[in-house]
Design a protein around this nucleic acid. Structure first.
Lengths: 257, 257
DNA sequence: TTGCATCGTGCACGATTATGCACGTTGTTA
DNA sequence: TAACAACGTGCATAATCGTGCACGATGCAA
């Protein structure tokens, strides 16, 4: 085993990537360094969006198997505000596709009334929300359901999606950065998003602050290929500048009520 | 298992998000902390709007995530009792198909734990319920969603279903009678059910009392072609006799607790 | 080689956080 | 109403955190 600092950090990242929580004190003892060094590692990994920093250690970003429903409650108001702004661009009669993701679920709750919209989705939760609306037509993309994604992203789903003529898609972004563009944690999910983008006339990605300038393993598309990045009202200006320089089109949301 | 404080809070949140109520004293014992710590967790979660605080524990938030709990409605206990009996026939490792219908939704809630089951369905709300179980694999049948059915019953759905090798299907019956057999209100829904039956090794239909000896416009199959009709504990004996004479196999459920 | 900037580390310090216990209060049940 | 369980709050304790600073190692240029 090498004692290079970066090797240790990668090892911790690997453990987190497999869904295990890590404890700072245990890592310090295991690697023979002080807890300070470990804390710095964890802070750096958290800054890259590769884990969630908590008191005593760190948790994997996907929480092991945290069901999507658990993520919905978090920051609900902010996500709704983001979604309300993103929904403004929708025109009457459009064919929408809502990708998986808790922010897109928020969007499903605030889609405009009586716009004669058709909504397609591969996410179970989003379908369940859209189903309750009488004024929306719903198309479900089936397939084997990926538990961490909460929707269908396999080859079956890709094939069904090919037949759709999508006006506007809302991409669920796991991470967004100027260099890495849009990226996703799961490889099949990333492949699904790539296909979705290629089938859509207009693409929109809603980005919460904690996803800004973070990266995930699997690249989906460059920042400039997305028609519109919707960001929160208090998004850090420095990070937005980076994205703008990379060619991204950015829309800032109204603050939450 | 990690004993990180926030990990515990996440686990509680996940349990609430899956629709389960939690009891403070039980959680304290389970996680090995005092009830004070649990109460603080629940208070924090309630402050985030992720649960509702009640005397003794906390209840899941009644928002959109439990769409069908309402539709199961007043007969909830009776349907659950029916479902519990129907679930008894399920063997480990089976591939199940749950057709649309509120009684099948009740079944989704009481599927046995850790049986290594695979569940396919064309109903959105059933999928949403199954999704929250980590021990079940879920396959979603996609297509255009029929609003009245709450699931996919079109040609697309039929094609996707053809590929499945179903051990046991649970047919949602709109009406059951000795003469008319199983029948459905919607014609495409009926066609879907016919195909489903032809693909399944074993077929089960749960029949609530108000459906016994009633008829709907579109015939699905004769009573004798269903492997098992599960009826309520207090089903009228006269009507059961008629069905038995028509060749039906009938199983009577235990009374609700 | 010398000089200097950079980086990772460990330590010290004050600040923050989680917890359990004690106390008085509120809600539930008989 | 009485008895009891659950509740919220204040407080003490211990663990953890973030930051500033000093030290040694490495890399680069003169």
């Amino acid at each position: 085993m090498s004692d290079l600092p970066l090797a240790r950090r990668d090892q911790i990242a690997g453990r987190l990537a497999t869904g295990h929580a890590v404890i700072a004190a245990a890592l310090a003892h295991e690697f023979g360094v002080s807890e300070d060094a470990i804390r710095r590692d964890l802070r750096a990994l958290a800054a890259e969006g590769r884990c969630r920093r908590v008191y005593g250690g760190a948790l994997p970003i996907a929480g092991g198997m945290t069901p999507m429903a658990a993520r919905i409650g978090q920051d609900r108001e902010r996500k709704l505000a983001l979604a309300r702004t993103a929904a403004r661009g929708i025109a009457r009669g459009e064919f929408l596709f809502l990708d998986s993701g808790s922010t897109n679920l928020a969007l499903a709750e605030v889609l405009p009334d009586d716009f004669d919209l058709t909504v397609a989705t591969n996410a179970i939760d989003i379908a369940a929300t859209v189903l309750h609306r009488q004024d929306l037509q719903l198309i479900m993309i089936g397939g084997s359901v990926h538990p961490a994604v909460g929707g269908c992203v396999d080859a079956d789903a890709l094939m069904q999606m090919q037949r759709l003529n999508i006006d506007r898609c809302f991409i669920g972004a796991c991470a967004v950065s100027a260099q890495g563009g849009i990226s996703a944690i799961d490889p099949t999910d990333a492949a699904f998003k790539r296909t979705l983008l290629s089938l859509s006339r207009v693409s929109v990605a809603m980005v919460t602050n904690e996803k800004l300038e973070t990266r995930a393993p699997h690249r989906v598309a460059g920042a400039k290929t997305i028609s519109q990045l919707t960001v929160e009202h208090d998004a850090p200006a420095a990070r937005l500048a980076l994205l703008k320089r990379a060619g991204a089109t950015i829309v800032t949301a109204a603050p939450p009520v």
